[in-house]
C-alpha cells in the first residue's frame, strides 16, 4: 500500500492548521474593535465557508486561484492541481472553526486582566501574548484541533482545486473515492480504517481540551 495519501493528508492538514491558527486568532481579536455594522458583515463573510457546500467553496477558489482566475492571472503562479492547492481549500473550510472558537474564548476573557496589565505599564503586545492568549488557551486549543480535524476530513473543495493525481495530489479522502470508483474495496477498507484511527485520536484530544476548558 502506497502511503503517500497519508503523508500528503497530514502535511496539508498541518500546514493549513498552522495558517488558520494565526489567521483565526488575529481575525477574532481585531474584529472586536471594529464598529458593530462592519463587524456583522465581516463576521458573515468569514463564517460563510462553514455553511456553504464545499463544492461552492471549491468553485470560488478555482475562479480565484485557477490558471484563468483572478490571482492566477495576476501572479502567474500555478495554484490549482498541485499538492498545495489542497492547503488553500483546507484553510478556507477550516478557518471559520478556528475563528469562531477563538472569538468565543476572547469574549469570555476577563477584560480587567488586560486593564490591570495596562495600568502596570505592560505593552499591549506583552499583554496579548503573555496574558490574553494563555488565559484563552483552552478555547484556542479546542479551535485548533477542530480546524485540524476539519482540514483532515476535507474532500469537496480539495477534489475540485487539487484533483486526484496519485503520488502528487492524492489525499486519503480522494483516494478512498478513487478506490471505490475503480472497485478496489479491499484497499478502500484499509484507507477507511486509517482515516477512522486518525479521527478517533483527534477527537480524544478535543475532549481532553474541552475538559480543561470547563475546568479553567
Amino acid at each position: 500500500m502506497d502511503l503517500f495519501p497519508l503523508f500528503n493528508s497530514l502535511r496539508v492538514a498541518a500546514i493549513s492548521t498552522a495558517v488558520t491558527f494565526f489567521a483565526g486568532i488575529f481575525a477574532a481579536y481585531y474584529i472586536e474593535r471594529l464598529p458593530r455594522a462592519v463587524r456583522g458583515v465581516i463576521d458573515v463573510i468569514l463564517t460563510l465557508p462553514l455553511v456553504l457546500p464545499p463544492t461552492v467553496v471549491g468553485f470560488f477558489l478555482l475562479k480565484m486561484l485557477g490558471p484563468k482566475g483572478f490571482f492566477g492571472m495576476l501572479t502567474g503562479w500555478k495554484m490549482a492541481m498541485v499538492w498545495y492547492s489542497a492547503v488553500f481549500a483546507s484553510i478556507a473550510v477550516a478557518f471559520p472553526l478556528m475563528y469562531r472558537t477563538a472569538r468565543g474564548a476572547f469574549a469570555s476573557f476577563d477584560h480587567t486582566l488586560r486593564h490591570s496589565g495596562q495600568t502596570l505599564g505592560l505593552s499591549n503586545t506583552y499583554i496579548f501574548w503573555r496574558i490574553t492568549l494563555p488565559n484563552c488557551r483552552a478555547g484556542i486549543l479546542a479551535g485548533t484541533i477542530l480546524a485540524f480535524a476539519r482540514a483532515l476530513g476535507e474532500y469537496g473543495a480539495t477534489s475540485m482545486l487539487a484533483g486526484y493525481t496519485p503520488g502528487r495530489t492524492a489525499i486519503i479522502s480522494t483516494t478512498v473515492y478513487q478506490l471505490w470508483r475503480t472497485g478496489d474495496d479491499g484497499l478502500a477498507y484499509r484507507w477507511v480504517a486509517v482515516n477512522i484511527a486518525i479521527s478517533v485520536i483527534v477527537l480524544l484530544f478535543l475532549n481532553f481540551a474541552e475538559g480543561r476548558r470547563r475546568n479553567a
Partner: peptide, 9 residues
C-alpha cells in the same frame, strides 16, 4: 481592581 485581577496563568 475589585476582583484584584491577578494573572491566573
Amino acid at each position: 481592581f475589585q476582583n484584584y485581577a491577578l494573572f491566573p496563568n
